[in-house]
Structure formats: C-alpha cells, structure tokens
Simulated scan of single mutants.
Amino acid sequence: MSEHSSTPVATPPTGVPVITTEQTRAIVGSMPVATRRRVSDSDLSVFPIAMSGNVFGWTADASESERVLDVYAAHGGNLIDTADSYAGGRSEIIIGNWLRSRGHRDDVVLATKVGKSADHPGLSASAIEAAVNASLRRLRTDRIDLLYLHLDEPEVPFDETLLAVDELIRAGKVRYFGASHHTGSRLIEARIASAQLGVARMVALQNHYNLVFRTEYEQGLARVAADLSLGVMPRFALAGGFLTGKYRSKTDILGNRRESEVARFLNRSGLKVLHTLDTVAAEHELPLATIALAWLLSKPNVVAPVVSASTGDQVFDLVAAVAVSLTRSQLTALDRAGE
C-alpha cells in the first residue's frame, strides 16, 4: 500500500475522551490562514500540510476524493501530492478532473512521482519522458510543479536521469524536482552531478519520517537535507494511522488493510509514544493525529508532512496541526518517547 497515511478518528484507551472532528472544529473555530512555507529556494510557496492522493481511487472513490480535496482547499490547502503508480493512475485522473472542474489549477502546487508505474518503470530518459507525458494527460494540465523521482535506480547513471528531467524543465512540463527513497550519499552524488552538468538541482526530499520511525532521517538524511537546502516533505507521517491512536492491540488491526504496516509499531516503544501523545493531546484538547503532525512541523527544514484522508471529515484534524504550538516541555516529552 501507500507510503502515506490516512487518518481515522483516534480511539484512545478507556478513560481518555475521544475528540471528534466536529468537536475539534468547535474548540478551534475557524482556522487562521497558515503562513505558507517556501520549498528550498524555489518559488513554490505551500500550505504546511500536503494532501496525498495515495488513497484516491483505492479506499476513497472519486466522489469522496473530490470532497477531501474540496475541504482541504477550503482550509487553505494548496499542495496536492500523488504518483503515477497510485491506484494504477486513477489517483492522477481523479485529481486532474477535480482541478479542471473546480478551476483551481493556478491555485495549486501539484506534485507527482515517476519511476514505479507499470507502464513506464524506472528512471531512464525514455521512461521519465513517457511517464511525465502520461501524468500530464491524466492530471489534465500542462505542467507539474514538483516532480519526484519515486525510487533510486543506481543502474541508470544519474547523468541520464538529471539531463532528462532538466530537458522537461526547459520544456516547461516540470517546474522543480526532488527525490524519494534516496540515501544521503546518493543525494550528494546527484547534487555534484547537477553542478557538473549545469542542470537543475533537486529542491525537495520526500522521506519516511514520523514519531515512531525516526532513525533513518534524523541520523543521516537530516544533515544532508540541511547541507543541500532541500525542503523536507515527510511521508508516512502518521505511520499508517498508528499515530492516530486507533491501533493499540493486535485485535485492533486484524483484517485491516494496513495490518502489515501498523503491526511493527505495536511494541513497547510504539505504545510509549501513544501514551505521550495521549497526554499532550489531552492538554490541547485535540486529536493525536493533530499533535503528531504538529511535532513534525516543529522540526528544522520540514516544509509539509504528506498525509492522506479517505473521507472529507478527516481533513480538519490534519490541517489543524498548522495552528498548534507545542511547548518546549511537550516537544521534549515527545522526542524522548520516540527515542
């Protein structure tokens, strides 16, 4: 399944009150307009929460997917993230139809990924060109604002990949690009190759990072992202829904589509994180998911965590994170819980 996370309403243990989306709205009221964040030194200015299309055409049908996007846009959201491989391309089709019907194209920063589709796999020059052209048709647009390389393919020389992307940028089909699934050393290699070739460089990194999956990013990628001035877009930001608090025992995940993803967090360390989230969420009278995203937004170089929603009702708890200010003691408690 996807790399991102949909967000069911949290279900705290007995004795901890459940805060619903409607209750959250009543507490918070109208969301203030969030200060948009710049992606590296590009001219892309984005809402601090990115809406993923990874469940569009899968757990969310076209109608509900459009409702998700409507609610997200109504709260100021403007960064939509998808991939040519999501739901076999149906995610891009749904987003493209929404953009065309709502007339929102110029108001949206549109991100997609290439490299994993069945029709145009890999990062060869021919595959990238074909994949981007196919994505443009499905998205019903003439340009992709932020294109990600959805995988690292060492068998293909970086020179070939970078030259192919640069040609698409020069043609106006892509504005900026970034990486996903790349190690720190490969990101550095790509930057050196870009400089030698005199072509566009990466401006963004979409990596796996959340409160229960921290080592890969914090002990390696974080320094590289800072050194290369990459805007960080954490994917899998809610750990497949684990950080909503819905899954606290093996019986909670039986038969769930995310069983294999969530099961690895059902251990002493993961439950310790949930316990700390319970405490901080209660102090703010907000859902766990909102607090987990607010924690990510407090981290250096993080621009916009990438999250998904299967229903429009789930969106408010996600975007509400941009208005949350965690105290120093709360941030310390969450940091220590996830160590």
Rank of each mutant, 00 (worst) to 15 (best):
P13W: 06
G15H: 04
V16W: 09
P17Y: 08
T20H: 10
A26F: 12
V28G: 01
V33H: 00
A34T: 00
R36W: 00
D41L: 06
S42H: 08
I49F: 00
A62G: 15
E66G: 15
D81T: 07
T82G: 11
G96L: 15
N97S: 14
W98A: 03
H104S: 13
V132H: 10
R137F: 14
R138A: 14
Y148E: 08
P157H: 04
L162D: 04
A164V: 11
Y176G: 04
S185K: 06
A193L: 11
L197V: 03
V199H: 06
F213Q: 12
T215R: 10
G220E: 03
R223K: 12
L230W: 08
M233I: 13
A239F: 11
G240V: 03
L243D: 09
G245V: 12
S249Y: 05
T251I: 07
F265Q: 06
L266K: 08
R268S: 15
L271V: 14
T279C: 04
V280S: 01
H284S: 02
L286Y: 07
P287V: 03
L293F: 05
L297D: 03
V306F: 00
A320N: 07
A323C: 09
A323L: 03
T327W: 01
S329K: 15
Q330V: 11
E339R: 05
